[in-house]
Simulated assay, not measured.
Amino acid sequence: MDNKDEAKSSREIVNVPPILSIYRHALRTFDDNFKFEFTTNLGKLKTMMDTLRAEDLGFDKSLNNPGTWEKPNKAPCTYIEVIQNSKMNMSIFVLKPGFKMPLHDHPHMHGLLKVIAGAVRIRSFSEYPLKEAANEIDFAARAKHEAARLAHGVHKRRRLFAKVSNDSVCSANAHTCVLTPTVSNYHEIEALEMPAAFFDILAPPYDTLIEGIGPRRCRYYHVANEISTNLVELQETEVPKCFYCDQAPYLGPILA
Rank of each mutant, 00 (worst) to 15 (best):
Arg159Tyr: 00
Ala117Lys: 09
Phe243Glu: 05
His104Thr: 09
Leu160Ala: 12
Val223Pro: 06
Lys241Ile: 10
Leu150Glu: 06
Leu57Pro: 06
Val178Leu: 13
Lys87Ala: 13
His187Ser: 08
Thr47Phe: 07
Ile80Met: 07
Ala191Gly: 00
Gly43Ser: 09
Asn185Arg: 07
Glu226Lys: 15
Gly67Val: 06
Asn89Phe: 10
Arg159Pro: 00
Glu12Arg: 13
Glu211Met: 12
Ala26Val: 01
Gly153Glu: 05
Ala256Val: 13
His152Cys: 12
Lys241Met: 09
Leu234Glu: 01
Tyr128Ser: 14
Phe243Gly: 00
Ala75Pro: 07
Ala248Ser: 12
Ile254Arg: 15
Leu63His: 03
Arg24Ser: 07
Asn65Ile: 05
Asn135Ser: 01
Gln235Gly: 02
Ser126Thr: 10
Asp207His: 11
Gly111Leu: 00
Lys156Tyr: 08
His108Ile: 11
Thr78Gln: 04
Glu70Trp: 02
Ala148Asp: 14
Glu236Lys: 04
Phe34Pro: 05
Cys245Leu: 13
Glu236Trp: 03
Ile210Arg: 06
Ala224Cys: 08
Gly43Gln: 08
Met1Gln: 11
Ala203Arg: 06
Leu20Pro: 05
Leu52Val: 02
Ser62Met: 08
His155Trp: 13
Ala26Phe: 01
Ala7Phe: 12
Met88Ser: 03
Val14Lys: 14
Glu70Gly: 14
Ala134Glu: 14
Ile92Gly: 02
Leu231Arg: 05
Leu150Cys: 06
Ala54Trp: 04
Val178Arg: 13
Pro102Ile: 06
Gly43Cys: 03
Ser9Leu: 15
Lys46Ser: 15
Lys144Asp: 10
Ile189Gln: 01
Thr237Gln: 15
Lys87Arg: 10
Met88Tyr: 00
Phe99Trp: 09
Asp32Asn: 10
Asp167Ile: 01
Ala203His: 09
Gly58Cys: 03
Pro195Met: 00
Lys87Ser: 11
Gly118Asn: 04
Ala26Tyr: 00
Ser62Phe: 00
Ile213Ala: 08
Glu70Cys: 08
Glu12Ser: 08
Arg53Leu: 11
Ala151Thr: 04
Ile254Gln: 15
Met101Pro: 02
His104Lys: 07
Lys8Cys: 11
Ala141Pro: 00
Leu160Phe: 15
Phe93Ser: 06
Met194Ile: 05
